[in-house]
């Protein structure tokens, strides 16, 4: 399955990634990929990824422009985003 991921604010700056196209093996991820599972998968990249996605920082997830919780299911073609709690206004 293929997904697109966006990173914003502190995550983008620290991970030095603003967006990426990610291909994941269907047998391990199709129909079971949640926001939490994706975070855990990405966190294996390095200590910095571990710290930013699974550490103390609260990270919110969105799928196709809608805020979701950690249990939300991601399907092929989805646009996923990770970012810190919002601070606009």
């Amino acid at each position: 399955m293929k997904i697109k991921i966006f990173y914003f604010a502190r995550l983008k700056e620290t991970l030095k990634f603003s967006t990426e196209d990610l291909e994941l093996p269907d047998d391990a991820f199709a129909n079971t990929l949640t926001i939490l599972k994706l975070k855990a998968h990405l966190a294996k990249r390095s200590d910095v990824w571990q710290q930013m996605l699974m550490g103390k920082l609260k990270v919110r997830g969105a799928i196709n422009h809608a805020l979701v919780d950690d249990n939300a299911l991601i399907v092929d073609g989805d646009e996923v985003a990770f970012f810190p709690p919002v601070t606009g206004g």
């Binding site: 604010a9 810190p84 601070t87 606009g88 206004g89």
Partner: peptide, 26 residues
Amino acid sequence: IMDYLKTEAPFWKKELTQSGERWLDA
């Protein structure tokens, strides 16, 4: 509208002070 904007709309602020840049916390 302002109360919801502050907590749900995806905006992030970074401020510049004399000691450098810093992201604001929610």
